[in-house]
Design a protein around this nucleic acid. Structure first.
Length: 462
RNA sequence: GGAUAGGUGGCAGAGCGGUCAUGCGUGGGACUGCAGAUCCCAUCUAAUAGGGUUCAACUCCCUACCUAUCCUCCA
């Protein structure tokens, strides 16, 4: 496999061991507000990435942090007149709901910053003892002059950086970053040897990864915008403590979502929330749209992007459901088809899901062309190929797995089939339209009828 | 100013030194009780600008211009 690695600044061989668990860490969200499709892009990509590794036979432990204490959370809490943890709990819950609706379910463990204060304090102590961090009136800071490689991930020459806008006068260097922030009146706090306060952002992640993965692990991911200073700070902290020559073997960063060629962000008020999108589109549509691009390129968001994705998703899903209908109980998922291994070679090169989709759509077209003449083996191949793609991409809309729902739908469809046979079209059509209203999409193909749950059924808008 | 990624047809977006993907869109046809879906054919005939290398450049090199991101919290 090959992957674009941020540190190497080029595509490099991704050599992962089969004989042990691969440790993957991806920066999770700060739970302070609703989530937008920029979040969706990153978490859907890593979801597909991890699932792809698992489908390919690797064992992966996927760890994600949740930043549940932070200045912005406090600001929000103050604005609403509630305690900070009301905010963090609300949006943590929201995060999990949204992720599950997006079929993002590959994370093994979510580590909350506030559950790891002890580990954070331990790291700060070591840094102070080594003379790498120092205490001031308002916190404990990491002295970047003690870590020559600072900025290396983003390829910055420290002298050429634009001067920092941070005016805090207590720091030795304006670019020194806080690893502990002392409490101001009214703020939430934890006890520490340096007084009451809360952790800085960067050290949360190193404390967490050090605890579960140790000083060096396999893959670290996140959005492009976290490269500097966040990931460089993580490197500085952990390597200063461990003395190792690296923090991880591979750095993988996802590109930003743009709107009208500008980054989606709160300040520009151009962000689209995931909930908004899910009101009109299915999770599969969004997944397709976001995966249908080079993961490290920025992606321009537009309504037509989603519409095109929905069309492709429908095309693939409809064929999948038709094939499944023809195969019935004899469908048998096999991964040893040559067709899968050739598609596999596309994905292996830099997680090229876009290239994969392109070829899958071509295949779908060819299967559609002579669907009536496909033999059992060919049908099973089509079924297996699509199931394999769906196992990590998550782009196929399927019938309900709920036995009661599917049983009821099958019953209605059988009745409708009889009605059509005796040309009672009015009744048959009314069943069709009633089912559609209930979110069940059906499609006649000769005397057979394929069905699935319509993705655009909307959702709770709470 | 520095770093990074780019500038391809109506849109999205690949690859490749010489035969210009693919998807969407658009037009026509087939199929169908209807809807939908699907298929076939056609259409669009592109490469920021200026140099250079070459028998040949969209593809390599140089210059200019332009765009986005990061250098402050950010997926």
């Amino acid at each position: 496999m090959r992957i674009y690695d941020t540190m190497a600044r080029t595509r490099i061989a991704l050599d992962l061991p089969h004989n042990r668990v691969i440790r993957v860490f991806v920066c999770g969200p700060t739970v302070q507000d609703n989530f937008h499709i920029g979040h969706a892009r990153t978490y859907i990509f890593f979801d597909a990435f991890v699932k792809y590794l698992r489908t390919s036979g690797y064992r992966v432990f996927y760890l994600q942090n949740i930043t549940d204490i932070d200045d912005k959370i406090i600001d929000r809490a103050n604005a609403e007149g509630v305690s900070y943890d009301v905010i963090s709990r609300r949006y943590t819950e929201e995060f999990h709901i949204i992720m599950s609706r997006l079929r993002v379910d590959s994370v093994n463990f979510f580590a909350h910053a506030t559950d790891h204060i002890a580990e954070i304090l331990a790291q700060i102590s070591i840094l102070i003892r080594k003379g790498i961090a120092y205490e001031t009136d308002d916190g404990v800071y990491f002295d970047i002059s003690k870590f020559p490689d600072y900025g290396k991930l983003w390829g910055q020459n420290p002298d050429t950086l634009l001067s920092s806008s941070d005016t805090s006068a207590t720091k030795k260097n304006p670019r020194d970053f806080a690893i502990w922030k002392k409490m101001k009146p009214g703020e939430p706090y934890w006890e520490s040897p340096w007084g009451k306060g809360r952790p800085g952002w960067h050290i949360e992640d190193t404390a967490i990864t050090d605890r579960y993965f140790g000083p060096v692990y396999d893959i670290h991911g996140g959005g492009m915008d976290l490269i500097f200073p966040h990931h460089d700070a993580e490197i500085a902290i952990e390597r200063s403590i461990s003395g190792k020559d690296r923090l991880v073997d591979y750095w993988i960063h996802t590109g930003m979502i743009n709107v009208n060629d500008e980054k989606m962000s709160k300040s520009l008020k151009n962000f689209v929330t995931i909930r908004e999108v899910l009101r009109s589109y299915g999770a599969e549509d969004l997944r397709f749209a976001l995966l249908n691009a080079n993961f490290s390129s920025s992606l321009n968001y537009s309504e037509s992007l989603l519409q095109e994705a929905r069309r492709n998703v429908s095309q693939i899903s409809i064929l999948y459901n038709k094939v499944l209908l023809k195969l019935g109980d004899s469908a048998k998922y096999r991964m040893d088809y040559d067709m899968i291994s050739s598609l596999n070679s596309i994905v292996r090169d830099n997680m090229d899901f876009r290239g994969l989709f392109r070829d899958v759509i071509k295949l779908v077209g060819s299967w559609n062309a002579d669907l009536e003449h496909l033999g059992k083996d060919e049908l099973n191949q089509a079924y297996s190929v699509l199931k394999w793609v769906d196992s990590f991409a998550g782009i196929i809309r399927k019938g309900s797995s709920d036995v009661t729902v599917s049983g009821t739908v099958e019953l209605l469809l059988n009745i409708r089939k009889d009605l059509r046979t005796i040309k009672q079209y009015q009744l048959a059509d009314s069943i069709r339209s009633r089912l559609l209203e209930m979110g069940v999409y059906i499609e006649d193909n000769g005397s057979d009828t394929a069905w699935w749950l319509n993705s655009a059924e909307g959702g709770d808008d709470s």
